[in-house]
């Protein structure tokens, strides 16, 4: 991120890095452990996880873009107020859009759509990235982070729905004799699944680091 404002035209590799940073290396859920409230609350089915991911992605991309556009005009003292105003606007818009698209999804997500306003990941990206970078890069960052968040939600939603209800996107997987593991649809199941995924992610990361060290030592 440093010194990005000095670069006139970012190179393709830099854009690539901005995008994949959020998707994988700095994944908001698995690496930064941000936005835990929707992550635990609405991932009891794949459909809900996808809807929440898409809503957050929309808010993140739009607010990043607008904040980046006005970044040079915002005095330091009122920047947080301005960012929250912009984020809240897009959350209200997404709230109307979901209600217009599907009432069933709207009811399933309940108060958690409005709570996207206080998702610290969005304000975090506004402050750490969008307010310091040109709109193009800010949009890429929003896309990367939003898709990374959606991917993480989908990981949780898939495990919880398959084990807790025996279905995937509402399609039964195991036939009528399967006894669903209801615990996974309840809040404790959310914590357990998140812990499981964090374990997998960390194990994979530390293995990668070990390999890199071995490679460096050999070189």
């Amino acid at each position: 991120m440093t010194g990005a404002h000095l670069v006139q035209a970012p190179s393709p590799s830099e854009n690539y890095e901005t995008f994949f940073n959020g998707l994988w290396k700095q994944n908001p859920v698995f690496v930064q452990v941000l936005g835990m409230c929707p992550t635990l609350a609405v991932t009891n089915s794949v459909r809900n996880a996808l809807a929440m991911g898409a809503a957050t992605l929309f808010v993140l991309v739009c607010s990043n873009m607008l904040i980046s556009l006005v970044r040079k005009r915002v005095p330091k003292q009122v920047r947080i107020a301005t960012y929250i105003l912009i984020i809240a606007t897009f959350v209200t818009i997404v709230d109307y859009l979901i209600k217009a698209l599907s009432i069933a999804v709207y009811k399933a997500l309940g108060p958690f759509i409005a709570l996207i306003v206080v998702n610290c990941m969005i304000l975090g990206r506004a402050e750490a990235f969008a307010s310091r970078n040109p709109p193009g890069k800010a949009i890429l960052d929003g896309l990367g982070m939003g898709l990374g968040f959606s991917f993480a939600l989908l990981c949780l939603g898939a495990v919880r729905e398959v084990l807790g209800a025996g279905t995937f996107l509402g399609v039964p997987l195991f036939g009528p004799r399967f006894q669903p593991w209801v615990l996974f649809l309840l809040p404790p199941g959310g914590f357990l699944t998140l812990a499981l995924w964090l374990l997998v992610f960390r194990a994979w990361q530390s293995r990668k680091e070990r390999k890199q060290e071995q490679w460096r030592a050999a070189a």
Binding site: V70, R73, P75, A81, T82, I86, A88, T89
Partner: peptide, 9 residues
């Protein structure tokens, strides 16, 4: 600034 942003929002 806040007035303009609020208006647009």
């Amino acid at each position: 600034l806040l007035g303009t942003v609020s208006f647009v929002c």
